[in-house]
Design a binder for these strands. Structure first.
Length: 473
RNA sequence: GGCGCUAUCGUCUAACGGUUAGGACGGAGCCCUCUCAAGGCUUAAAUAGGGGUUCGAUUCCCCUUAGCGCUACCA
């Protein structure tokens, strides 16, 4: 049984890199009918906040993929401590009484820090005595020093990995305030939750050697599988961060820009992974079916945005592809929500609404376009653009539009073809080109010079409103 | 500084030793057309540099360079 976990720490919004990690975990586990664990890694008291936990849920809920089991590390502290003390008991870890402030003075840039030999060699009696006296300490993992060996694991993406114990420092397991470090909490939980595949960002690739040491020391069973994902970076080549790159790094930004969750998921999947057969637009089903770690790349992927253009153009394109191909029935409720959020109430029944959505969607790339560019289809209060005004100001245009209104009113039939017939007949009788009347109609009905076929516009606005709007010009 | 990872068009990527180095986004142009999209077609655009191995390297090995990551009582 495959079990994976997504383990965000609540120290900010849901980062798009984290979102992609979540998605890859999800695709993998759904493909193999395993269990998805959501685990909140909240062991850093200083940086955690309830607000950021909520924003992570917000992002996850928007993606809409879901999970099967849920844990918070802060509820599992006893387990973490037990693992640390067990390692201490067995001599695989030791107490380090060095005050935290002294460690800051370490010459970081020159030689790497491995351990403090004095603390490492403290006898059990001394160590116990100082602890009993209330002196603060951290518990560190005792990495082999006398007989260095290669710590090895096989990464599903990066292949065989190894690192000499001589290059691994005696990392902390338990802080002096009694809280576990990331390394300890993560491994203790992965063991306890019987996680079989650890899928996470490549920034943890070198940490994995430490984790392997913990797993080997603390778990009876064999190592989980590891799969590290290439990082998402900005156009400047640096890791995406809110401070540097702004709101583009938060998934909710894309929700707020009117993205379809599927469109954005699809985009994220194509960053660092490909199905190898040139497919780009894919359904969740297709993504799940063909996802594999073999298809994951090893080099970082740039999210392509700029100040003028804050959304990756490919994301926008992919979204527009989904927007025009998903079933109207699935799209319509989302459009309705968007409209309502902008104070617009669509006309007519569901069938009519679906018809309108279906007609105009191929020109749009986000949900927001329905309430902005598509406003005239859902409200009588819409702006007339300057170019549209020009069309209306064409000689005789207004008068012809009023006549057209009369013709339409006189004709009981109201379909694309009946309107077209009425319009063309009127143009012919008046000795003007049909194009003039067609363009003027669109301008009058939508306030815009761009949009669907003019006759389709008539049916989307509806008979009564068409007559009204044509007369009003 | 040490260790680890990476390197194909501007961007996302394909090519698991032999291709005119393919596709997509974006750009340019053409067609279609009542407008705008969509769609179709065309086009510009890449193997970081240097050594090997090989009949033959984008592909395998080494070096250089560059970028990224880890080197915290952050995750």
């Amino acid at each position: 049984m495959i079990r994976v976990r997504f383990a965000p720490s609540p120290t900010g919004y849901l980062h798009i890199g984290s979102a992609r990690t979540f998605i890859f975990n999800w695709l993998f586990v759904r493909k193999h009918q395993g269990t998805m664990v959501l685990r909140i890694d909240d062991t850093d008291l200083d940086r955690n906040s309830e607000a950021s936990l909520n924003s992570i849920y917000e992002g996850l809920n928007w993606l809409g993929l879901g999970w099967d089991e849920f844990y918070r590390q802060s509820d599992r502290l006893d387990l973490h401590r037990k693992v640390a003390y067990d390692l201490l008991e067995r001599g695989l870890a030791y107490r380090d009484f060095t005050p935290a402030s002294d460690l800051d003075d370490r010459p970081h840039s020159e030689a790497q820090w491995l351990c403090n030999p004095e603390m490492r060699s403290l006898s059990k009696e001394q160590s116990d005595a100082r602890a009993a006296a209330g002196e603060p300490f951290v518990i560190r993992f005792r990495v082999e020093r006398d007989a260095p060996y290669e710590v090895e694991f096989h990464d599903q993406v990066y292949g065989p990995q190894s690192k000499l114990t001589a290059d691994i420092e005696d990392f902390a397991l338990l802080r002096s305030n009694g809280m576990p470090t990331y390394h300890l909490a993560s491994c203790a939980d992965d063991i306890d939750l019987r996680i079989t595949h650890i899928v996470r960002g490549q920034d943890h690739l070198s940490n994995t050697f430490k984790h392997v040491l913990i797993f080997q020391a603390a778990a009876e069973r064999s190592l989980p599988q590891f799969a590290h994902l290439p990082l998402l970076i900005g156009p400047d080549g640096s890791k995406l961060s809110k401070r540097r790159h702004g709101p583009v790094v938060s998934v909710t930004t894309y929700r707020d820009h009117g993205f379809l969750a599927l469109g954005y998921i699809n985009f994220l999947c194509l960053l660092g992974w490909s199905p190898k057969d040139n497919r780009e637009q894919m359904s969740l089903y297709e993504l799940t079916a063909c996802f594999s770690f073999e298809g994951v790349n090893r080099s970082n992927a740039v999210v392509n945005f700029s100040e003028e253009d804050p959304i990756d153009p490919k994301a926008l394109w992919l979204n527009s592809q989904h927007l025009r191909t998903i079933p109207v029935g699935a799209l319509a409720p989302l459009v309705r929500q968007t409209l309502e959020a902008h104070g617009l109430t669509p006309y007519g029944d569901d069938a009519f609404f679906n018809h309108v959505v279906d007609t105009i969607r191929s020109r749009f790339s986000t949900l927001l376009d329905f309430s902005s560019k598509g406003r005239a289809y859902f409200s009588d209060d819409y702006p007339i653009e300057p170019q549209a005004l020009e069309k209306l100001n064409a000689p005789g245009a207004r008068e012809l539009l009023r006549k057209l209104a009369d013709r339409i009113e006189a004709n009981p039939e109201f379909t694309e073809s009946s309107v077209e017939a009425d319009l063309r007949k009127l143009a012919e009788e008046s000795g003007v080109k049909a194009g003039l009347l067609i363009n003027a109609s669109r301008a009058a009905l939508t306030g815009q010079t761009v949009g669907p076929s003019a006759f389709a516009v008539f049916t989307c606005i509806g008979r009564e409103r068409v007559i009204q709007r044509l007369r009003k010009v």
